[in-house]
Design a protein around this nucleic acid. Structure first.
Lengths: 232, 232
DNA sequence: CTGATATTTTTGTTGCAACAAAAATGTAAA
DNA sequence: TTTACATTTTTGTTGCAACAAAAATATCAG
């Protein structure tokens, strides 16, 4: 493995090992919802899918499992996690703490052109929603959040938040289109951008916390419905 | 890799792969201060040290690097991280958020015999300090903190806090004995235990936050002294 | 059809050798 | 001594085969 610089998300893909590349591609697939909760991942299948040998594939799977982006369903079975109500609640608590912190700090380091860039991202979310491209909307939503978090200039924090999104990402994709149709988060995002413009850290935090809580409520409902469906 | 159950820190060492064992042993060595900041770790050296082949050794190093417990100083050079002032400040911010959350939640799930167990751990810290066994004091200090955090019944949170301690652990060992001599943290720990007994989550959080901030102040001073020493 | 049991297949792990790239070392010129 | 360059050594990576263990499948008794 050879990332050289873990600090910044540097797209220096020139001297990247196969293991690093596999890890990065798997991460993107997980967030993009290619793998659904419960999906089983085997070393050889991933190796074939990514066109590498078993060693880099194993590297990637092990790293993701070590970050809890994948979990063990048995001694030799790694799957995309299926979040139960407790796990969902816990991760939401942690998200509120970490993303709230990042949002607040962002409000104190923001520059004017940063907010413009955010407005552009929001427009991408909106047009994706208009066109019914819900997976794209979810992806741009992720970019919007992380664009804010990166403003905090706290690289360790951003990395930790990324591991959290990796854990809930697959479950998020179980919600749309029903849930994406109601233009989720749009209002909270607008409030956050206004607060950023005024450099009001506390308000940025409040807006982001609201967004997280809104998502949690919908996710919890979906989780309940699925559970009752599974029983019946 | 075969941990089966990542959720709880289950000492089920029976069906543990060599890679898992290597990872666990390396983690303990890092926290115990066996490796100092800047120490270079090579696959073959670790393999020999742990008496395994290169594959499990490489697994362990890669997993630790992926969690930022080890960092790259070059394309083929992983070292124990040397925290600069910025990184120290950032990690402290994150610690305050996560360990504060864990402490508060612990205050709301604590049982009576839990506090007794904590008192025992504190006694171990004290006798280690009395005997001048500072490395042991640091170890018991870690156990004290995590005994509290585990009371929160939030396994994901505890795991995330562990990765933070892994990052600052090596730097902590650069401080004693000077810093351990002043019985660091003893007062904060006593306040925390009192607050736990009264199930006062907010006060538990305050005590732990105080403890973290005290440690930060000392660490920062040491970091400054070392920097000026390095220049001179 | 159900449940337990035996069989077959699949799967993660491990050690290792070859390779390319980086780091360490040595050398010489200024 | 210092700097730049060439050489040697060390190092991470990668693919692969063998192995043991687990998972999937087939079989059969009730």
């Amino acid at each position: 493995m050879a990332a050289h610089v873990k600090e910044l998300s540097n797209p220096d893909r020139s001297a990247e090992s196969l293991g690093d590349a596999a890890y990065r591609q798997m991460k993107e697939r997980i967030i993009r919802g290619v793998y659904r909760p419960g999906h089983k991942l085997t070393v050889r299948a991933v190796a074939q899918e990514l066109d590498v040998s078993t060693t880099p594939a194993r590297d990637a799977i092990n790293r993701l499992a070590s970050e809890a982006a994948l979990v063990y369903a048995g001694p030799k079975t790694v799957v995309v996690p299926v979040l139960d109500a407790d796990a969902l609640k816990e991760i939401t608590l942690i998200r509120l703490a970490l993303e709230g912190l990042a949002a607040q700090q962002a409000g104190e380091h923001v520059a004017d052109d940063d907010v413009e860039a955010l407005g552009l991202l929001q427009k991408q979310i909106n047009s994706a929603l208009d066109a019914g491209r819900y997976a794209d909307a979810l992806w741009h939503n992720k970019e919007f959040h992380f664009a804010i978090y990166r403003l905090a200039k706290l690289p360790h924090l951003v990395l930790m938040i990324e591991t959290l999104w990796l854990r809930i990402g697959p479950s998020l994709h179980n919600l749309y289109p029903e849930f994406a149709k109601e233009r989720f988060g749009v209002h909270n995002h607008e409030v956050a951008m206004e607060a950023l413009q005024e450099r009001d850290g506390a308000s940025v935090r409040a807006a982001i916390e609201n967004d997280i809580r809104d998502g949690y409520r919908r996710l919890k409902r979906a989780c309940r419905e699925k559970a009752t469906l599974h029983v019946a």
